[in-house]
């Protein structure tokens, strides 16, 4: 799942470690989310959206399949 986590994090001048510590996850999780290798749970997605003060849909972009 594509997302804007890296863009939003950098806009606030935060390193991955600082952002991870702020939302109580590991730095590796942040890296995996930003690379699209890992999709966060609903709870973590809400935590991230609350941190940036933006709705979830503006941070995580779901690509709908053409077959749906």
């Amino acid at each position: 799942m594509k997302n804007r986590v890296e863009e939003l994090r950098k806009s606030q001048g935060l390193r991955q470690e600082e952002f991870a510590r702020a939302i109580r996850v590991s730095r590796q999780t942040i890296s995996s989310i930003e690379n699209g290798r890992y999709s966060p749970s609903l709870e973590l997605a809400f935590t991230i959206s609350e941190f940036f003060g933006l709705p979830i849909e503006e941070i995580f972009i779901r690509e709908r399949s053409d077959t749906l």
Partner: peptide
């Protein structure tokens, strides 16, 4: 504590 509760880990 963070690593223990981290969902991805």
């Amino acid at each position: 504590q963070i690593d223990l509760r981290d969902e991805r880990k």
